[in-house]
Nucleic acid binder design. Structure first.
Lengths: 179, 179
DNA sequence: CTATGTGCAAAATCTTTGCTTGAAA
DNA sequence: TTTCAAGCAAAGATTTTGCACATAG
């Protein structure tokens, strides 16, 4: 089941208009409170403002930038609260990351062409053979104009077998060290 | 022009065996010293050990992990030297990152399916329409076994127009704030 | 009421910087 | 012998944590 915005609902964040796609027909769910309930979270004022702020921002904001924007509406909010809630939203699936943040730089010693399998729970990275997948079509797009392509990185995101097992056992949502 | 290792040169890092592919035929270049010369870097002992250590490591090591491994060979090396050289190698193209590290988490408010155009110089991220590119073939690979795929992220890496312009003007290699 | 979230301050990580000494070209 | 790198210590940036108080359910 996917949660998403209608194509135009984006710009000034037309608040209570979230849609829930069920692979068959869209159904309207009331508001942020329901969205939180869907994800098992308390619908606090701070959360609502953080979420709406993120959705209203252009680009790919960092926690600091979100904090700066949220402070205009709740001057007393703390950076820790923004961090905690961004993390909570990411873990619950209400928001997602541009690409998996590993906390530190990761160097790639494997010089051969390959993709990655990245676990969003434990952040483990495994190499993946690219056989039969052609993303090179991307380098021919006119929308690239001015951009000099050097490489195309493909990350297959999901839950690794080890984490899926643990999940069933513990129901924990905590971020974990790589399996 | 691509610099790479032969398929089997990987395991215990068969040192002086680097190959230079010219899109036509491979030619052998002498050693680490030549590789450094190719990239305009001084071939110091520390650099050699750091580079060889990275290439010998399995997985996708962080600077800390590289530091731990290098210290076994040069106990007096400093973490700062490892950081400086990892950065130097990444910027010169002698090594590459698993995926672009942005220093902080980046949240994706755009819920529609799209890819990213990422500048490796200024790290700016732009959205890219995925029209006509099918990476879904990846979800059918048997090598995925046990991994539950939720999303496939595609990053087109390269140099944005603004950075390409600056490069020509200043020849600077410094990491810069997004254009 | 009871469980969860917030705010604050402090700590833990990760990374860079300035400067002096040392090594490479 | 000049230029670039290493080592060290300190600072800067990013993220998490513990705890007292507040709020949602």
């Amino acid at each position: 089941m996917n949660v998403g915005f209608s194509a135009h609902a984006k710009q000034p964040f037309d608040k209570q208009q979230l849609f829930l796609f069920d692979n068959s027909y869209p159904m309207i769910i009331s508001d942020f409170t329901s969205l939180c309930r869907e994800h098992g979270l308390a619908a606090t004022h701070q959360r609502r403002v953080i979420y709406e702020t993120v959705m209203s921002l252009e680009g790919h904001p960092s926690p600091e930038l979100i904090y700066d924007a949220v402070r205009k509406k709740i001057p007393s909010i703390s950076l820790a609260t923004v961090y905690k809630n961004v993390r909570t939203f990411l873990e619950s699936g209400m928001l997602r990351e541009v690409s998996m943040h590993h906390g530190s730089i990761r160097v790639e010693p494997n010089e051969s062409e390959h993709y990655h399998l990245v676990c969003t729970r434990c952040r483990r990275i495994q190499d993946l053979d690219p056989e039969g997948v052609q993303v090179q079509a991307l380098t021919k797009k006119r929308s690239l104009k001015g951009f000099h392509v050097t490489r195309i990185a493909v990350d297959v995101l999901g839950i690794c077998a080890a984490c899926a097992g643990k999940e069933r056992a513990t129901k924990s949502r905590r971020r974990e060290k790589p399996c």
